[in-house]
Lab assay of single mutants.
Amino acid sequence: MSGIALSRLAQERKAWRKDHPFGFVAVPTKNPDGTMNLMNWECAIPGKKGTPWEGGLFKLRMLFKDDYPSSPPKCKFEPPLFHPNVYPSGTVCLSILEEDKDWRPAITIKQILLGIQELLNEPNIQDPAQAEAYTIYCQNRVEYEKRVRAQAKKFAPS
């Protein structure tokens, strides 16, 4: 494992614990031996107030490669969400998460999670990743928002 990646992720964890947006979660997972795995984080993004996503808490896994922060983490909703920019596998399609697009090593975990929260309610229809959600979003916004509200209710924190 890269010392650069681990040191950056340790800084990220410290900064997150000191200050993070209300309702968001970002925690490194534990290895079988109980030690912390900084390369694999369990996160959760709350649906934004005043949107059909409100009330939901959407679980996301963030996986970092050894060359982080040169390369972005892979962000994957578990379980996958109904959304035009979420692949059926759950992987998020967002330009700041793509090395050859808008990724920059200075982007923080907090910025990534806030960017994904923004994307939930403002899909990028130029870059669809899920045919069904994309089609319904474009053709029947009322039905799309109904499905999103049902999903938010399903993923409401207990």
Rank of each mutant, 00 (worst) to 15 (best):
I136M: 11
H83G: 03
L114W: 13
F77L: 06
R141D: 10
F77S: 01
Q126R: 14
P28L: 07
L119K: 02
G56N: 02
T91F: 14
A26H: 00
G34Y: 04
Q117L: 09
R147G: 04
V92Y: 04
D19I: 04
I116E: 05
D127L: 01
V142A: 11
P128W: 04
P105K: 01
K65F: 08
F22L: 04
K18P: 00
P32C: 09
A156N: 05
L63D: 14
L94C: 08
M39H: 09
P52R: 09
I109R: 04
L57Y: 07
G55C: 12
Q139W: 09
L6K: 12
P79A: 15
P128A: 13
S7Q: 09
K110N: 08
P88K: 11
D33T: 04
A150K: 13
E122A: 12
F24D: 12
A15P: 01
P28G: 15
Y87K: 03
E122G: 08
T135F: 11
K65W: 03
A10W: 07
A156V: 08
D33Q: 03
K153G: 02
C93A: 05
D100R: 08
K14E: 02
Y144T: 00
V86K: 07
P128R: 11
W53T: 01
A5F: 10
E145T: 13
M1K: 05
P105S: 11
K110Y: 05
M36P: 02
D33F: 01
G23N: 11
K18N: 03
K49V: 14
E54Y: 07
F24P: 00
P105G: 10
Q111L: 13
Q151H: 04
R61K: 13
A131D: 08
K59W: 14
T29Q: 07
F77K: 02
L97W: 09
L119T: 01
A152T: 07
L81G: 03
E98M: 13
L113K: 03
L94G: 00
E122S: 11
V27L: 13
Q139K: 10
L60W: 04
A44Q: 02
P80V: 07
P105N: 01
T35M: 04
L38P: 07
D67T: 10
T91N: 11
C93M: 05
P88D: 15
L113N: 05
N40I: 07
Y134R: 00
K48S: 03
E78S: 11
K59V: 12
A10T: 11
S71R: 08
E78N: 14
E132R: 08
G3A: 04
G34I: 06
R13L: 05
G23D: 01
Q139E: 13
W103P: 00
Y144V: 01
W103D: 01
